[in-house]
Design a protein around this nucleic acid. Structure first.
Length: 635
DNA sequence: GGGCGCTGTCATCTG
DNA sequence: CTCAGATGACAGCGC
């Protein structure tokens, strides 16, 4: 199960990369570097789960037993961060030559009969590769039909000046895409949908389209969708009909397209490119339009919550019997929001539902937590702990040093506590607490005190078959007091209930102090865990920021370099052109003008004048001297 | 046996 | 003043 989640996490990130490349913006950073990362429970209010969720409950295994923090089963926790760093590193060519060639190839139906069939997920494992070889990419381009997304770390940013043929090819493609968009617009207009959001979500793909259109080659067709084995496994786990998830891959892309763009460049230059292009050229190339065949098979839509929402972005449209152009014609903000809401933290709630059917042989829920919070199962702290020796309760009990003696002495106090203890069986706290992630707000927390008492007692009584667990020091103390509450409950119950407990149980002063210490220690334990988790998150966030700034710096440096090269090339072309023009001109004696002595000057009104080069130089020098004099006079 | 990381606990501060 | 939370510091434990 953990492999499943780890696998899913990696797959999700890779899928996010692909979505980003085809224009669907998915905020990955917010998932992993934000305060409320997906691997952290989300905020749920003043006593949120984030606050009270032990950090290390994620380290628990499916069997529920404790694992060491260094256990490899923690990998899935850190895998997301590692992958994120790798994704970030993709944009930095200075670090390592990496290229991700991810191909999404669509079928081009000949007669339309194939449009609804699921895409062939069998793919060549070489289609996704991390390879520094530049020539492999070209090979990939020549083998496939459809559109390929190739992230090349070593590809250049500046687009080479297009030849006339390339331009015509681009324009043709643009026109075709525009025509398709017009058709879709007309359909949408007839069906009275919100036109404002028509192109909204395709704007993000404008850059990719432009880069795509501006890139070099159009690969020949390839039938079938080729995915790397990891993707096949990843998708096959959820039984997702990929064609239903990306129907536009089949129907909306008659022209196979490929483009090479650096991932970083795609991110950095998105705004520039989008602004530099005329609006008319921003044609939505990738549409998320539902087809009739998307959900022809109801079982295909029965995947887990995440696949149905993540992959089948247009699934709800057809399920709700709305027309494809209404709901699935384009991605809308809700879809983006949904994607953004799909942080990995939701896996905690998704996976049990989704994976139950897939891994029925797993006896123990993987969500089971163990070593966390109050260390209710066990406490490695020896009785000789300093805190134990300083415990007021021990002092009051006549210097009892061992916990067993404490328990005995307390248990021997008899009275109501002992009677209550006889009627109360210990709670299997592992089962009772850590399976419920709402433990931050106990079930009866919001109820009245008496009902809260009753609810707790009933729950405690229902745990008759609970196996005795190795309990912590405080837990044993609570049991010794004969209270019908666990240490966890004492820690997490509202203060009103806690005070009522203190009053209602006829506790002595030392016992009250013990309960207060238990409550304080338990709360502080959670606070310490949160504090450490927060500190770790802060460090990771800062590391991510450093990484991002480094990538940004690299991009700016590259941009500066390219700008300088472009400027130099323009100057060179101007010089060549000037020499050519001057060579055609004659002075009053019929001699051709010497380019060494004359230059062309383009004025603002478009006039081109021939000026003596020496005069310009001298005038420039004169101007500089004038400026210098002015500067000297100023102080 | 020492280093290191994790964890619990205490003391203290803040809201 | 009480309470809850945050955080630095310290110590114990396991690897």
């Amino acid at each position: 199960m953990h492999h499943m989640k780890k696998y899913f996490t990696e797959g999700l990130i890779q899928f996010t990369i692909l979505l980003s490349l085809i224009g669907v913006r998915v905020d990955v950073d917010s998932y992993f570097s934000g305060y409320f990362s997906p691997l952290i429970e989300t905020d749920g209010g003043p006593s949120s789960a984030f606050i009270q969720t032990p950090f290390h409950h994620y380290r628990d295994t499916a069997a529920g037993h404790q694992v060491h923090p260094k256990c490899p089963e923690l990998d899935y926790f850190f895998t997301s961060r590692r992958l994120l760093n790798e994704v970030r590193a993709l944009g930095s060519p200075a670090r390592f030559p990496t290229r991700v060639s991810a191909w999404l190839v669509h079928l081009v139906p000949d007669d339309g009969s194939d449009a609804g069939e699921p895409l062939d997920l069998s793919g060549d494992p070489d289609d996704e590769e991390i390879d520094a070889d530049n020539h492999r990419e070209e090979d990939d381009h020549t083998t496939g039909e459809g559109f390929g997304l190739s992230v090349s770390q070593d590809c250049t940013v500046s687009r080479p000046s297009c030849a006339a043929g390339e331009l015509s090819k681009e324009e043709t493609l643009l026109n075709r895409v525009n025509e398709e968009e017009e058709v879709v617009k007309e359909e949408r207009g007839r069906e009275d949908t919100s036109p404002a959001s028509l192109n909204q979500l395709t704007q993000s793909s404008a850059l990719e389209q432009e880069d795509l259109l501006g890139s070099s080659s159009l690969p020949p067709p390839l039938s079938g969708l080729e995915l790397p084995p990891r993707w096949q496994d990843f998708l096959s786990e959820f039984d997702v009909n990929f064609s239903s998830c990306f129907p536009y891959l089949e129907a909306e892309l008659p022209n196979p397209i490929s483009y090479d763009v650096s991932l970083q460049d795609a991110m950095v230059s998105r705004g520039d490119s989008a602004n530099s292009r005329p609006a008319s050229s921003r044609t939505p190339l990738f549409r998320l339009e539902s087809t009739n065949s998307s959900h022809s098979d109801p079982s295909q839509s029965s995947a887990g919550a995440l696949p149905s929402s993540l992959f089948c972005l247009s699934g709800n449209s057809s399920r709700n019997n709305t027309s494809p152009s209404q709901m699935g014609g384009y991605l809308d903000e809700a879809v983006f929001e949904h994607i953004n809401m799909l942080d990995l933290g939701n896996l905690d709630t998704i996976d049990p539902q989704m994976l139950d059917g897939m891994e029925g042989d797993m006896d123990t829920p993987w969500l089971e937590d163990s070593d966390s919070g109050l260390s209710l199962e066990s406490s490695s702290r020896s009785p000789a702990s300093p805190s134990a020796s300083s415990d007021s309760f021990c002092d009051d009990e006549g210097g009892a040093t061992g916990y067993s003696s404490e328990v005995e002495s307390l248990s021997s106090k008899g009275g109501a506590c002992a009677a209550a203890y006889r009627d109360w069986s210990p709670v299997n706290l592992v089962e009772y607490i850590w399976h419920d992630h709402t433990y931050s707000t106990p079930q009866a927390q919001n109820s009245t005190s008496s009902s809260w008492f009753t609810a707790i007692k009933q729950e405690v009584m229902s745990e008759d078959e609970a196996e005795p667990e190795e309990m912590s020091r405080d837990e044993r103390r609570v049991q010794a007091l004969g209270l019908p509450f666990s240490a966890f409950q004492i820690v997490n119950m509202p203060v009103e209930n806690f005070l009522e407990l203190l009053d209602s149980q006829n506790l002595s002063g030392s016992e009250v102090m013990l309960l207060r210490d238990i409550r304080r220690r338990g709360k502080n334990k959670l606070a310490a865990q949160n504090c450490r988790k927060r500190k770790l998150d802060t460090i990771l966030t800062l590391q991510g920021e450093v990484e991002g700034l480094s990538v940004q710096r690299d991009a700016l440096l590259r941009q500066r370099s390219h700008t300088a090269k472009a400027l130099s090339a323009a100057a060179e072309r101007f010089e060549t052109l000037s020499r050519t023009v001057l060579g055609q001109l004659r002075d009053e004696y019929g001699h051709p003008l010497n380019a060494e002595h004359y230059t062309l000057h383009c004025s603002a009104n478009g006039r081109v004048m021939v000026q003596p080069r020496t005069n310009t130089a001298s005038r420039t020098m004169t101007g500089r001297k004038t400026m210098k004099r002015k500067k000297d006079k100023k102080p």
